[in-house]
Design a protein around this nucleic acid. Sequence first.
DNA 1: ACCTTTGTTACCGACTTGTGAAAAATGGCT
DNA 2: AGCCATTTTTCACAAGTCGGTAACAAAGGT
Lengths: 263, 263
Amino acid sequence: MSQGRESLRVAVIDNDSGFIRVLTNRMDSAGWQHRVLATAVPPQELVAMKVNAVVVDLGVMGDEGWSYLERITGLMPDLGVLVCASGATVSQRVRGLRIGADDWINKPCHPEEVIARIESVARRRRRLKPSSTVGPLVVGEIEVRADQFQAFVAGQSLDLTRREFELLQLLAESEGNVLERETIYQRVWGYAMAHGDRSVDVFIRKLRHKLEKRSPGFAYIHTHFGVGYRFAAESSMPSAPAVAEEGSDRAAPQSTEVLSASV
Amino acid sequence: MSQGRESLRVAVIDNDSGFIRVLTNRMDSAGWQHRVLATAVPPQELVAMKVNAVVVDLGVMGDEGWSYLERITGLMPDLGVLVCASGATVSQRVRGLRIGADDWINKPCHPEEVIARIESVARRRRRLKPSSTVGPLVVGEIEVRADQFQAFVAGQSLDLTRREFELLQLLAESEGNVLERETIYQRVWGYAMAHGDRSVDVFIRKLRHKLEKRSPGFAYIHTHFGVGYRFAAESSMPSAPAVAEEGSDRAAPQSTEVLSASV
DNA sequence: ACCTTTGTTACCGACTTGTGAAAAATGGCT
DNA sequence: AGCCATTTTTCACAAGTCGGTAACAAAGGT
């Protein structure tokens, strides 16, 4: 499992240009995605950005600062909040932490410490909910559920083994794209594919078989000769129209019809 | 506004008597349970104390400090760790945070701020609490009662031991989801699972046995080879009608609407 | 035609899990 | 303290399952 150093998404709410410049530099070299905001934004917007943590200087908001802090910590308990303010007293820091901030560091401060504290806060937050963030993935009639390590068609399990599931998950995630064998092997097996290794082909066959069993009438895995494989739900019925993408409503081959609700 | 201020359990590893006196005073008035240790104790002992957080002065351990810190953060990812040391440099603080400390505050510091930071570090507990406050948990024929540390079928106790109950409770709470052994061990035993440890398997067997005794005709614990276990009440009778749950059939997806168009 | 790439099947060894029992630890009791 | 009953952990072995390899067939490309 190569979960370790995942790139964080961080929002910075501050207008101290010097501080921002050096901080964004550090975040860049750490490979983090970041967004700088000169002023407070509505909490909804922070949600939409899907950030793991937010660094905020309460100074930019004046008296609103406290209530803003309270709002985002109350609304988004999973968000890491690091307050980074100039010349705050002990009682101010205590107040901020009590309200829900995860950490507080006074300026002037070393950017490396800010980075380390963001990491720490994000690490702590992530321990909370490791899995529930990933919603089920739907392609054609297939539903891939990471929390179950399984895929389903109309509620019926495909009985995939671990490797089979991981392969299907990778394919489903990159729906529509052609993946070369080397890429697939690298991402599912975790290391480079030896020359002449046929494991990918064999597992593709196993997957095809199980997909066909539970969802006949669709072809999911398409071979691109000399290149690799592409995953896409296509009707294999000669007379039926092509795709089964979301939104396409048509008569099902069997007696059961599957409607996919949202993206 | 701090509602369910359940008393935290905190261990303090330090020998600075003045600091300790004033800190324990504050913890007492906050209603926390605490234990002061003049020297480092084996991580297992911290596990046994079931503390939510530990405050540690790396000074008391000399060079061992770093490795000790590394050990406890590695072994107990859920433990809040607040380092509280005298005159640490930025790079030392960064190193500590990187190793896994949740926070670092330099002495001399105001005890109220230490209290607030401990709270902040331990705040993740809030999430799990509400589940225990709600009524007993029912899955299939099984009723799990957290207030009694027992589970029942038709009013009959399963005679679970403490560990058995905790394991069953965890499984029942995450009904339908596959839990990996490492996760189970981490959440029931409280620290990281050693490689090759079979305790989870053994207790799963014990649970299965007791569940089978009191509730035959149902299969509750399902093995996912190479992954872990999933808890769900499924009728083991071939012809018998299904579950006493809201979903009428097997592990069913929630995000997909299945419409049967049969005549 | 020729060679290369992919499909398909069967099999064996390695690893995972089930199972019972012994050993160790825990906790109460006198 | 020592003793006993219960619980937890560890161990060894049995039973299963899966993954990767090899070997051959089929299909695609030149």
